[in-house]
Design a protein around this nucleic acid. Structure first.
Length: 927
DNA sequence: ACTCTGCGAAGAGGA
């Protein structure tokens, strides 16, 4: 049996005499999840006592296969030979993380913090890994090498390599693999699997094994190793996979390391064992070691979060604030002293010393440089902790893969279950197309183009593969593309840590590598500067030139023109506040053109692909075509594919395309990618900046000398799972800090006077107004609709209807029915269904309404950025306004400002009147 | 209690 629960007390390790001699033990009390509410005693014997050293009150402890005993009337537990002891099992450690942790815990920390930059060993390693996978799947070597090198064209070009030399080197590596494979596959009993995704709930591990051979892990290393034994940390990595395979009921007694640089060509020069493959036996003791290391890592991560939040915690570093009387607690970070690794041989030594120096951390390698100012240290620690909290939330998403039943998972819209497998076709060598049919009208968050986890029904314990969704047909057809043929019975959303990883590297880049002038502004030490005249180059710094007219970029909108002017004159940054319908996108396009005309190279970034493509479209509409769009094939909209940067092809050509484009457009997530981190710009212009966390904004702006943020902090804030500093955007913080560095676009081209009035008064101090009389006076009549054809309660520009419905969970069926009737009335009166949109706060209600109408129905969040002639809003709530979704009034701002000519609010008057804000809304709507 | 977009899914190396 297993015991598990939060730790309530930890005793010291002691040594006792047993019939087997002296043995160490450590006693820990936990509060078990089930059963007795009282804490129970768990004794960790032998080396598990070492894991006990890392244990802290509040951490979660899991001990499997315990021995149960009665001691003085109390039930106690102890480890046995079969036991595994796992600290914080919910913290999912990546196998490559354990590998670097074993080399040196600080290396693990540094890799996480500074990311792995674009470098040749990694790119070549990736290519060789892909070729290895191809060879296992029977692809011809030459064909694979040519193809895989071509696919890496952009990376190689940026690194200055040409295809032929890389092909040559990869071919030599691959030859070693092929030679070894030829021996291995002589026996019929050899079964191979490549790229095996493993997730371990028990050990809190995840990772991808390069290959499995007869159920044992095979790890490919593109380096050379002339020792008889595999490198220790390589064995650790393979052992992690062995551990996870064992959990799945396999019995992997050996692991294989394949060093592909151990080739015949080198054999004359070197002594030692040059066979590429090295096997080692995977014993129980080694696996236990691996688990203890994983526990040490998970415990450090726990302390980094909890010690920082708890000033009383013992054994943490403290830094004095300016005042000196208050000590600030800093997150626990590995120093390198934990390991006996030798710093002078470490590839990360320079990074290690720089990070230590800049962040004032203790480290075995020592420090170089001076610490950044104290407020920057505070900022770094605050956001580091916030990002790590967000990581925990991502881990919670993984946990749902095994904690939720398939039905719960499907109800959560995170999986398509009970798929009926229809077939597997090998579409090209080593690529499979898997087809299935989904039952009924099952819906999910999964979309075409997404990476998802396809499985035989059990995504954690069964056969699962990461696949790309090709088609989710309305007829229930599901088509995915995979490397291996899995029987497609279930498709799950696969959580990704990429966004948290990218935020962390962006934070690192911003604080450690950021330009000091830039940081003065970010950290509130200096007002942003503006050039008074727009000159070319550095000449325009003077404030004397009153002669000559103000530059006119946009002649019919003073605030838009002022925004462009401000952005062009910005020496540090400019902030453009664009309320709904104020021509943000047009202004962005005009700004980019003005900047390019001065010779600036511009990075155009936004949170979503949709916003990037919209801005790009506006730019191209203005006749500017010299753009490169960086993004995935599925992320980039169809009509922007022609300017999308291909990663495949001739290295020089691909790299030149990116390096010389006057405008590069990408999502902020892509800005944090290896490729874009290599690029430099004069100006970064970030749209939707109010929806971005500070670190995500840094990902874009650290690539440029100056930046322009465009957004509206009165609309929806960043989407984050954890509640912390990430919820507030840099845009919002800066616009409050430096109102003079901002311009608000105050004329809107979208809504009638009647519709915009409430939002203008509530959110924009009444400053938002219609751009023209025509905008102000628009109505349904302009659509050729006779208002007389509508029921009496509709047709007044803004209407309120109380259908007397009742909220049931996140739905309100009566209200949904009424909304459908209202939509039908509009259509009957002659409104084009394409001109009508329905908005609801909950997805459940969106589904409820969608069943009853064919017009566009979506959540507020998904409607942000678009508009319709007629909008119907369903509020769902009845009686009271309980729920976090109603707390953020900005969501209402978004919902109400989607309508151009007619807006109908549908809800329970009593519920809405229970809150002053909603009461004012009601008063306005009923007028 | 809710909302939910991005990410190539990881990936390498030497005294």
């Amino acid at each position: 049996m297993n015991v598990r629960g939060p730790i309530v007390s930890v005793e010291d390790t002691r040594t006792v005499s047993t019939s087997y001699g002296d043995r160490e033990l450590r006693e820990i009390r936990i509060r078990p999840e089930r059963g007795a509410a009282d804490p129970v005693r768990v004794t960790l014997w032998g080396k598990w006592a070492q894991t006990g050293e890392h244990a802290r009150i509040g951490m979660e402890l899991l001990v499997t296969d315990v021995e149960v005993d009665e001691f003085r009337g109390e039930t106690t537990y102890a480890t046995t030979r079969e036991s595994w002891v796992v600290l914080e099992p919910d913290f999912l450690v990546d196998v490559t993380g354990i590998r670097s942790w074993v080399q040196c815990p600080r290396m693990y920390y540094l890799n996480k913090l500074s990311g792995i930059p674009l470098n040749y060993p990694v790119v070549k390693g990736t290519i060789v890994h892909e070729v290895f996978g191809d060879l296992l799947r029977g692809v011809d070597l030459e064909e694979s090498v040519t193809e895989r090198v071509a696919e890496a064209g952009l990376d190689l070009g940026l690194l200055g390599y040409d295809a032929a030399e890389v092909e040559d080197e990869v071919r030599r590596n691959a030859a070693a693999i092929e030679g070894w494979l030829a021996q291995g596959t002589l026996t019929d009993e050899d079964t191979w699997r490549s790229e095996f995704t493993l997730i371990s709930p028990r050990f809190g591990l995840k990772g991808r094994a390069d290959a499995l051979r007869r159920g044992t892990p095979v790890e490919l290393k593109t380096g050379k190793n002339t020792n008889r034994e595999p490198r220790f940390h390589d064995k650790v990595q393979a052992a992690c996979y062995a551990l996870m395979l064992e959990e799945r009921g396999e019995d992997p007694d050996i692991g294989t390391l394949l060093y592909t640089k151990n080739t015949a060509l080198d054999r004359n020069e070197e002594s030692g064992d040059l066979a590429p493959a090295k096997e080692f036996s995977v014993g129980r003791g080694f696996l236990e070691f691996v688990v203890r290391e994983r526990n040490a890592l998970a415990a450090m991560e726990w302390r980094a979060l909890h010690d920082a939040a708890n000033d009383d915690a013992p054994d943490v570093d403290t830094v004095d604030d300016d005042g000196g009387d208050e000590a600030r607690t800093r997150p626990t970070v590995p120093t390198g002293y934990e390991a006996d690794a030798k710093c002078q041989f470490c590839f990360e030594q320079d990074t290690c010393m720089v990070v230590s120096g800049r962040l004032d951390q203790e480290s075995k390698a020592g420090q170089v440089g001076r610490p950044v100012p104290d407020e920057e240290l505070v900022y770094f620690d605050r956001f580091y902790t916030a990002i790590e909290e967000e990581r925990r939330e991502t881990h919670a998403e993984y946990r749902k893969l095994w904690e939720q039943t398939p039905a719960e998972r499907a109800a959560d819209d995170r999986a398509l279950i009970d798929l009926e497998p229809l077939g597997k076709t090998e579409i090209s060598e080593a690529r499979w197309e898997l087809r299935a049919r989904k039952p009924g009208d099952a819906v999910s968050k999964l979309r075409e183009g997404d990476v998802a986890l396809a499985s035989d029904g059990d995504p954690v314990g069964g056969h699962a593969e990461l696949v790309r969704i090709r088609r989710l047909g309305p007829d229930g057809e599901v088509v995915v593309e995979a490397d291996e043929p899995v029987t497609l019975r279930r498709l799950d959303v696969y959580p990704s840590e990429i966004s948290v990883d990218r935020m962390l590297t962006a934070l690192h880049d911003a604080v450690l590598k950021g330009d000091p002038d830039r940081k003065d502004v970010i950290f509130g030490r200096r007002e942003p500067a503006f050039k008074s005249v727009v000159g070319s180059g550095a000449a325009g710094d003077a404030d004397l030139s009153d002669e000559g007219a103000e530059p006119v970029y946009i002649d019919n909108n003073a605030s838009q023109n002022a925004a462009v002017d401000l952005a062009v004159r910005a020496a540090d940054c400019a902030l453009i506040h664009g309320p709904p319908g104020t021509g943000k996108t047009y202004t962005i396009a005009r700004t980019i053109r003005a900047l390019c005309e001065r010779g600036d190279r511009v990075l155009l970034a936004a949170f979503t692909n949709r916003a990037v493509d919209n801005a790009l479209e506006a730019l191209r509409d203005q006749g500017f075509e010299d753009v490169v769009r960086v993004g995935t094939e599925t992320g980039v909209r169809e009509d922007m594919q022609d300017v999308r940067l291909r990663t495949r092809g001739d290295p020089d050509e691909r790299a030149a395309e990116l390096k010389t484009a006057p405008v590069v457009a990408a999502t902020t997530a892509a800005c944090g990618s290896r490729v874009l981190r290599e690029c430099e710009f004069d100006v970064a212009l970030v749209d939707e900046a109010s929806q971005l966390t500070e670190p995500s904004t840094h990902a874009a702006i650290t690539l440029a000398d100056r930046f322009v943020l465009v957004g509206d902090h009165q609309q929806l804030p960043p989407v984050v799972r954890a509640e912390n500093d990430l919820q507030r955007s840099l845009f919002e913080r800066l616009i409050e800090l430096y109102p003079d560095a901002g311009v608000m676009l105050d004329r809107q081209y979208r809504m009638s006077q009647r519709i915009q009035a409430f939002a203008s008064a509530e959110f924009y101090d009444g400053a938002l107004r219609p751009a023209t009389p025509a905008v102000a006076g628009q109505s349904l009549t302009d659509l050729g609709v006779a208002v007389d054809d509508l029921p009496e309660e509709l047709g007044h520009g803004v209407n309120f209807i109380d259908p007397d419905g009742r909220r049931d969970g996140n739905r309100n069926v009566r209200e949904a029915e009424r909304v459908a009737e209202i939509v039908a009335s509009y259509i009957k009166a002659g409104v084009d269904p394409d001109d009508i949109g329905v908005i609801a706060p909950f997805r459940a209600q969106v589904a409820e309404i969608s069943r009853r109408t064919d017009v566009t129905v979506d959540t507020v969040d998904r409607f942000q950025g678009s508009a319709k002639e007629v909008i119907v809003v369903s509020f769902v709530a009845s009686g009271t306004l309980d729920g976090p979704i109603f707390d953020d009034y900005r969501r209402v701002n978004v919902a109400l400002t989607r309508a151009k000519k007619e807006l109908t609010l549908v809800g329970d008057a009593a519920a809405l009147a229970s809150d002053p804000f909603y009461r004012r809304m009601l008063a306005w709507a009923r007028r």
